[in-house]
Amino acid sequence: MKHYTYPSVLAIAGFDGSGGAGLQADIKTISALGCYATSVLTALPVQNTQGVRNIYPIPYHAVKEQIEAVMDDIMPQAIKIGMVHTSELVDVIAATLQRYPKVPVIFDPVMVATSGHRLIEEATIEALINTLFPIAALITPNLDEAALLAQMEIKTVEDMYLAGTKILKLGCNGLLLKGGHLEGKKITSLYFQNDGKVLSFEFEKFDTTNTHGSGCTLSSAIASYRAQGKSLAEAVLLGQDYVHQAIYNGKDVLVGKGNGPLNHFFNPQKLIKNDLD
Protein backbone atom coordinates (compact mmCIF):
# COMPACT_ATOMS: atom_id res chain seq x y z
CA MET A 1 0.00 0.00 0.00
CA LYS A 2 1.28 3.43 -0.94
CA HIS A 3 1.55 6.03 1.83
CA TYR A 4 1.37 9.81 1.71
CA THR A 5 2.00 12.77 3.98
CA TYR A 6 0.61 16.29 4.17
CA PRO A 7 2.73 19.46 4.13
CA SER A 8 2.53 20.50 7.78
CA VAL A 9 2.66 23.95 9.39
CA LEU A 10 3.06 24.56 13.13
CA ALA A 11 1.38 27.73 14.42
CA ILE A 12 2.69 29.09 17.73
CA ALA A 13 0.31 31.86 18.76
CA GLY A 14 -2.37 33.22 21.07
CA PHE A 15 -6.07 32.41 21.19
CA ASP A 16 -8.99 34.32 19.69
CA GLY A 17 -12.39 33.15 20.84
CA SER A 18 -14.09 35.30 18.19
CA GLY A 19 -12.43 33.15 15.52
CA GLY A 20 -10.84 35.85 13.35
CA ALA A 21 -7.26 36.12 14.58
CA GLY A 22 -4.62 34.15 16.49
CA LEU A 23 -4.53 30.38 16.32
CA GLN A 24 -8.03 30.26 14.87
CA ALA A 25 -7.00 32.38 11.87
CA ASP A 26 -3.80 30.36 11.55
CA ILE A 27 -5.59 27.02 11.47
CA LYS A 28 -8.19 28.29 8.98
CA THR A 29 -5.51 29.72 6.68
CA ILE A 30 -3.24 26.68 6.78
CA SER A 31 -6.22 24.38 6.13
CA ALA A 32 -7.64 26.55 3.33
CA LEU A 33 -4.27 26.36 1.55
CA GLY A 34 -4.17 22.57 1.62
CA CYS A 35 -1.73 22.09 4.49
CA TYR A 36 -2.03 20.27 7.81
CA ALA A 37 -2.19 22.58 10.83
CA THR A 38 -0.69 21.84 14.22
CA SER A 39 -0.67 24.41 17.00
CA VAL A 40 0.87 25.61 20.25
CA LEU A 41 -1.01 28.02 22.54
CA THR A 42 1.14 30.87 23.93
CA ALA A 43 -1.51 32.99 25.66
CA LEU A 44 -5.24 33.22 26.29
CA PRO A 45 -6.49 36.68 25.35
CA VAL A 46 -10.12 37.40 26.13
CA GLN A 47 -11.23 39.25 23.03
CA ASN A 48 -13.87 39.71 20.38
CA THR A 49 -14.16 41.80 17.21
CA GLN A 50 -14.37 44.96 19.36
CA GLY A 51 -11.10 44.54 21.23
CA VAL A 52 -9.04 42.74 23.86
CA ARG A 53 -10.52 42.59 27.36
CA ASN A 54 -7.82 40.65 29.18
CA ILE A 55 -4.84 38.36 28.59
CA TYR A 56 -4.21 35.26 30.68
CA PRO A 57 -0.75 33.66 30.47
CA ILE A 58 0.05 30.04 29.65
CA PRO A 59 2.79 28.53 31.88
CA TYR A 60 6.14 28.72 30.10
CA HIS A 61 6.96 25.06 30.63
CA ALA A 62 3.60 24.18 29.06
CA VAL A 63 4.52 26.12 25.92
CA LYS A 64 7.88 24.30 25.75
CA GLU A 65 6.20 20.92 26.21
CA GLN A 66 3.60 21.69 23.54
CA ILE A 67 6.31 22.53 20.99
CA GLU A 68 8.32 19.41 21.83
CA ALA A 69 5.23 17.17 21.64
CA VAL A 70 4.38 18.37 18.14
CA MET A 71 7.97 18.38 16.85
CA ASP A 72 8.60 14.86 18.17
CA ASP A 73 5.61 13.51 16.29
CA ILE A 74 4.58 15.68 13.33
CA MET A 75 7.66 17.53 12.08
CA PRO A 76 6.44 20.64 10.24
CA GLN A 77 7.82 21.94 6.97
CA ALA A 78 7.35 25.52 8.24
CA ILE A 79 6.60 27.30 11.52
CA LYS A 80 4.58 30.46 12.08
CA ILE A 81 5.05 32.40 15.32
CA GLY A 82 2.50 34.98 16.40
CA MET A 83 1.75 36.43 19.82
CA VAL A 84 4.70 36.22 22.22
CA HIS A 85 3.97 38.75 24.93
CA THR A 86 6.73 38.32 27.56
CA SER A 87 10.52 38.10 27.39
CA GLU A 88 10.49 34.81 29.30
CA LEU A 89 8.18 33.29 26.71
CA VAL A 90 10.43 34.58 23.91
CA ASP A 91 13.43 32.84 25.51
CA VAL A 92 11.54 29.54 25.94
CA ILE A 93 10.33 29.46 22.32
CA ALA A 94 13.68 30.49 20.85
CA ALA A 95 15.64 27.97 22.94
CA THR A 96 13.26 25.15 21.96
CA LEU A 97 13.20 25.97 18.24
CA GLN A 98 16.98 26.33 17.97
CA ARG A 99 17.09 22.54 17.95
CA TYR A 100 15.30 22.54 14.58
CA PRO A 101 17.33 24.97 12.45
CA LYS A 102 16.25 23.51 9.11
CA VAL A 103 12.57 24.39 9.56
CA PRO A 104 11.84 27.90 8.19
CA VAL A 105 10.23 30.25 10.71
CA ILE A 106 7.84 33.06 9.73
CA PHE A 107 7.46 35.47 12.66
CA ASP A 108 4.60 37.95 12.95
CA PRO A 109 5.74 40.20 15.84
CA VAL A 110 2.27 40.85 17.26
CA MET A 111 2.51 44.03 19.33
CA VAL A 112 -0.60 46.02 18.47
CA ALA A 113 -4.09 44.64 17.74
CA THR A 114 -6.21 45.92 14.85
CA SER A 115 -8.26 47.75 17.48
CA GLY A 116 -5.12 49.67 18.52
CA HIS A 117 -4.75 47.78 21.80
CA ARG A 118 -1.11 47.31 22.84
CA LEU A 119 -0.47 43.60 23.37
CA ILE A 120 3.18 43.47 24.37
CA GLU A 121 5.37 44.53 27.27
CA GLU A 122 8.14 47.04 26.54
CA ALA A 123 10.91 44.74 27.76
CA THR A 124 9.73 42.01 25.42
CA ILE A 125 10.66 43.96 22.28
CA GLU A 126 14.38 43.70 23.06
CA ALA A 127 14.03 39.96 23.70
CA LEU A 128 12.26 39.52 20.34
CA ILE A 129 15.07 41.31 18.54
CA ASN A 130 17.86 39.43 20.30
CA THR A 131 16.50 35.88 20.24
CA LEU A 132 13.64 35.41 17.76
CA PHE A 133 14.73 37.68 14.89
CA PRO A 134 17.94 35.69 14.28
CA ILE A 135 16.12 32.35 13.88
CA ALA A 136 13.30 33.72 11.70
CA ALA A 137 13.56 33.59 7.91
CA LEU A 138 11.05 36.44 7.73
CA ILE A 139 9.32 38.89 10.06
CA THR A 140 6.02 40.53 9.05
CA PRO A 141 5.26 43.62 11.17
CA ASN A 142 2.45 46.02 10.36
CA LEU A 143 3.17 49.75 10.38
CA ASP A 144 2.34 50.23 14.07
CA GLU A 145 4.72 47.42 14.97
CA ALA A 146 7.37 48.64 12.52
CA ALA A 147 7.14 52.11 14.09
CA LEU A 148 7.91 50.57 17.49
CA LEU A 149 10.84 48.58 16.08
CA ALA A 150 12.30 51.45 14.03
CA GLN A 151 11.49 54.06 16.69
CA MET A 152 10.02 56.47 14.15
CA GLU A 153 6.70 57.57 12.71
CA ILE A 154 5.71 55.95 9.42
CA LYS A 155 3.36 58.09 7.34
CA THR A 156 4.55 57.51 3.74
CA VAL A 157 6.05 54.82 1.52
CA GLU A 158 9.36 56.71 1.78
CA ASP A 159 9.10 56.33 5.58
CA MET A 160 8.55 52.61 5.04
CA TYR A 161 11.83 52.30 3.11
CA LEU A 162 13.70 54.10 5.89
CA ALA A 163 12.02 52.09 8.66
CA GLY A 164 12.72 48.84 6.83
CA THR A 165 16.40 49.68 6.55
CA LYS A 166 16.53 50.41 10.28
CA ILE A 167 14.72 47.19 11.20
CA LEU A 168 17.02 45.10 9.00
CA LYS A 169 19.96 46.45 10.98
CA LEU A 170 18.41 44.90 14.10
CA GLY A 171 19.48 41.52 12.75
CA CYS A 172 16.49 40.01 10.97
CA ASN A 173 17.04 37.81 7.91
CA GLY A 174 14.10 39.10 5.90
CA LEU A 175 11.35 41.67 6.40
CA LEU A 176 7.91 42.13 4.88
CA LEU A 177 6.65 45.57 5.84
CA LYS A 178 2.88 45.78 5.39
CA GLY A 179 1.53 49.20 4.42
CA GLY A 180 -2.17 48.60 4.96
CA HIS A 181 -2.48 51.46 7.47
CA LEU A 182 -1.24 54.17 5.08
CA GLU A 183 -3.67 56.66 3.58
CA GLY A 184 -4.52 56.16 -0.10
CA LYS A 185 -6.37 53.88 -2.51
CA LYS A 186 -3.50 51.38 -2.84
CA ILE A 187 -1.75 49.20 -0.28
CA THR A 188 2.02 49.10 -0.74
CA SER A 189 4.07 46.38 0.93
CA LEU A 190 7.85 46.17 0.85
CA TYR A 191 9.81 42.92 1.03
CA PHE A 192 13.39 43.51 2.18
CA GLN A 193 15.52 40.49 1.25
CA ASN A 194 18.68 39.55 3.07
CA ASP A 195 20.73 40.23 -0.08
CA GLY A 196 19.80 43.92 0.03
CA LYS A 197 17.08 43.82 -2.64
CA VAL A 198 13.69 45.39 -1.92
CA LEU A 199 10.58 44.15 -3.74
CA SER A 200 7.49 46.38 -3.81
CA PHE A 201 3.92 45.04 -4.03
CA GLU A 202 0.75 47.04 -4.66
CA PHE A 203 -2.81 45.94 -3.95
CA GLU A 204 -6.16 47.67 -4.16
CA LYS A 205 -7.50 48.89 -0.82
CA PHE A 206 -11.12 47.97 -0.01
CA ASP A 207 -13.60 50.03 1.99
CA THR A 208 -14.11 47.62 4.89
CA THR A 209 -13.33 47.18 8.58
CA ASN A 210 -13.21 43.40 8.17
CA THR A 211 -9.46 43.08 8.58
CA HIS A 212 -9.32 41.49 12.05
CA GLY A 213 -6.58 38.87 11.96
CA SER A 214 -5.12 39.93 8.62
CA GLY A 215 -1.57 39.88 10.00
CA CYS A 216 -2.01 36.43 11.52
CA THR A 217 -3.47 35.23 8.25
CA LEU A 218 -0.63 36.64 6.15
CA SER A 219 2.17 35.04 8.16
CA SER A 220 0.33 31.69 8.18
CA ALA A 221 -0.23 31.89 4.43
CA ILE A 222 3.46 32.55 3.80
CA ALA A 223 4.39 29.65 6.08
CA SER A 224 1.91 27.42 4.23
CA TYR A 225 3.42 28.21 0.84
CA ARG A 226 6.91 27.60 2.24
CA ALA A 227 5.70 24.23 3.54
CA GLN A 228 4.57 23.44 0.01
CA GLY A 229 8.13 23.99 -1.22
CA LYS A 230 7.78 27.51 -2.65
CA SER A 231 10.74 29.89 -2.35
CA LEU A 232 10.44 32.59 0.29
CA ALA A 233 9.99 35.33 -2.33
CA GLU A 234 7.27 33.29 -4.05
CA ALA A 235 5.58 32.55 -0.72
CA VAL A 236 5.59 36.28 0.14
CA LEU A 237 3.82 37.11 -3.13
CA LEU A 238 1.30 34.26 -2.93
CA GLY A 239 0.61 34.90 0.76
CA GLN A 240 -0.22 38.54 0.13
CA ASP A 241 -2.47 37.61 -2.79
CA TYR A 242 -4.36 35.13 -0.59
CA VAL A 243 -4.95 37.76 2.11
CA HIS A 244 -6.01 40.32 -0.50
CA GLN A 245 -8.65 37.92 -1.86
CA ALA A 246 -9.74 36.84 1.64
CA ILE A 247 -10.39 40.49 2.56
CA TYR A 248 -12.22 41.14 -0.71
CA ASN A 249 -14.48 38.12 -0.29
CA GLY A 250 -15.32 39.01 3.32
CA LYS A 251 -15.55 42.79 3.05
CA ASP A 252 -19.37 43.00 3.08
CA VAL A 253 -20.06 40.29 5.69
CA LEU A 254 -21.16 41.27 9.21
CA VAL A 255 -19.54 39.13 11.91
CA GLY A 256 -19.62 40.78 15.32
CA LYS A 257 -19.99 44.47 16.14
CA GLY A 258 -16.39 45.58 15.55
CA ASN A 259 -13.60 44.74 13.09
CA GLY A 260 -14.83 41.58 11.37
CA PRO A 261 -12.74 38.64 10.10
CA LEU A 262 -11.48 37.76 6.63
CA ASN A 263 -13.16 35.09 4.51
CA HIS A 264 -10.46 32.43 4.82
CA PHE A 265 -12.43 29.88 2.83
CA PHE A 266 -13.18 31.85 -0.34
CA ASN A 267 -11.46 29.08 -2.34
CA PRO A 268 -10.46 26.21 -0.03
CA GLN A 269 -7.93 23.70 -1.31
CA LYS A 270 -8.02 19.98 -0.64
CA LEU A 271 -5.31 18.68 1.65
CA ILE A 272 -2.18 18.22 -0.44
CA LYS A 273 -0.90 14.63 -0.49
CA ASN A 274 2.83 14.17 -0.99
CA ASP A 275 4.37 10.81 -1.75
CA LEU A 276 6.44 9.37 1.06
CA ASP A 277 9.97 8.57 -0.16
Rank of each mutant, 00 (worst) to 15 (best):
R118P: 05
A32H: 06
A235G: 10
L41R: 01
V63S: 08
Y191H: 15
L168F: 05
L254P: 03
T86W: 02
G184P: 10
N54T: 02
E88G: 13
P45Y: 07
N210I: 06
G51V: 06
Y248P: 01
D26M: 04
K2N: 08
V105P: 12
D207P: 01
K2H: 07
Y242C: 06
S231Q: 07
L237C: 12
S31K: 00
G17T: 14
V46S: 14
H212G: 04
I222S: 13
V92A: 04
D108L: 00
H264P: 02
S189L: 03
C216H: 07
S8G: 00
A62I: 06
V255S: 01
A62Q: 10
L33D: 06
C172G: 08
G171D: 12
E158F: 00
K257C: 08
P101S: 13
D195I: 13
L132F: 02
A32N: 11
A163Y: 09
D72I: 01
E145C: 11
L148M: 15
Y248F: 15
N210M: 11
C35F: 05
Q245S: 11
A94V: 07
D108C: 03
G116P: 07
K169N: 15
I58W: 05
H212E: 08
V70C: 00
K251R: 15
H212I: 04
S231R: 09
Q245K: 09
N142V: 04
K178V: 13
L190Q: 08
Y4V: 02
A43H: 10
E88R: 00
T5P: 00
P104V: 04
P109N: 08
Q47K: 02
L218Y: 01
E68R: 14
F265M: 07
T5Y: 09
L232Y: 12
S18N: 06
T217C: 15
F206I: 07
Q269W: 11
Q77R: 14
G213L: 02
Y191G: 05
L176T: 09
I272H: 13
D26S: 15
A123V: 08
Q66T: 05
I93G: 00
P261N: 09
I55Y: 03
K197W: 02
Q50F: 12
L276Q: 02
K270Y: 15
V103P: 04
R99E: 13
D277C: 06
D252T: 13
D241N: 15
Y248Q: 11
S31G: 01
P76D: 12
A37I: 08
E122F: 06
K257P: 01
L97H: 00
E204F: 03
K2M: 13
L254H: 11
